[in-house]
């Protein structure tokens, strides 16, 4: 056999065998490369899916949290503004029924009941108005935002410079999201940022809606906010997400905050 291998003709067979071996080795290397790449790609995709899932979970949590917070606020408002006052009315009426009062005292109590009822009525109207402003339903987003800004201006705490150009790009439910976002931004600026001047610009083009918002309040630290977002900011984020829009914000401590939101016209 060894002698045969050394023969000239046999050398060709040896060369062919070596060539086959080399080809086979390369093919095996390719297959191994493929399997390792596949493993890596699948692992990356899994990681991505997990990340997305945790984000969705986070969003769900914040939605529930917001809902609970809102319920608490409404309960508090109902208790403070309505129950407490109706209690007063009830007490005063009882005193009247007893009939032990003198005429001028009766008149005074009735007057008191009337004024409390009027205030309660006003409070309940305001409460309902805060929950869902009727103006949004009846006169549209532009009027509702303008009224909202005017309310803040009339509180004398803040000056708002607004410029709103809006017709009917978004659906009614999406308009409500925009309204809530602006409400949240204004509340944040006044309550947490203690801003004195706010600038709001809304511009509608054929394809999209751009919202620019800036204040001169205390501002916040972007890094720490990214780690631990408050309910307000998460609320804004999830609403922008529902609108399928883009949100970017910038802020520095002591230098106010800027928010830019843009959302495209929904595809029919």
């Amino acid at each position: 056999m060894e002698k045969e291998l050394l023969q000239e003709d046999s050398q060709i067979i040896v060369i062919i065998l070596i060539a086959i071996l080399v080809l086979l080795l390369m093919a095996v290397a390719l297959v191994l490369f493929f399997f390792f790449s596949r493993k890596k790609i699948i692992a990356t995709e899994l990681e991505k899916a997990t990340l997305e899932l945790s984000y969705q979970k986070d969003l769900l949590h914040s939605t529930i949290e917001t809902q609970e917070e809102e319920r608490k606020r409404i309960a508090q408002d109902l208790h403070d503004a309505i129950s407490a006052k109706l209690n007063v009315v009830s007490l005063s009426t009882n005193v009247l029924i007893d009939g032990k009062l003198e005429k001028n005292e009766q008149a005074h109590t009735l007057q008191h009941i009337l004024s409390v009822t009027t205030r309660t009525l006003e409070s309940s109207r305001r409460l309902a108005h805060n929950l869902l402003p009727p103006i949004l339903e009846n006169f549209g987003l532009q009027a509702a935002i303008e009224e909202l800004c005017d309310e803040f201006i009339s509180s004398k705490k803040v000056k708002i410079n607004y410029e709103i150009k809006y017709k009917d790009l978004l659906s009614k439910s999406n308009e409500l999201h925009i309204f809530r976002i602006i409400q949240e931004l204004l509340n944040n600026s006044v309550r947490h940022g203690e801003a004195e001047n706010i600038r709001l610009k809304i511009n509608e083009t054929n394809e999209q809606l751009d919202l620019e918002y800036s204040d001169d309040g205390k501002g916040f630290d972007i890094k720490s906010v990214n780690k631990n977002k408050g309910i307000g900011l998460r609320n804004i984020e999830s609403r922008v997400e529902i609108l399928d829009g883009k949100l970017s914000y910038h802020s520095e401590i002591g230098n106010g905050a800027t928010f830019n939101i843009s959302t495209k016209k929904p595809q029919p």
């Binding site: 056999m1 045969e4 291998l5 023969q7 003709d9 046999s10 067979i13």
Partner: peptide, 11 residues
């Protein structure tokens, strides 16, 4: 090729 069967069978 002018080779033996055993070489042939190698392949």
């Amino acid at each position: 090729l002018n080779i033996s069967d055993s070489m042939n069978f190698l392949l």
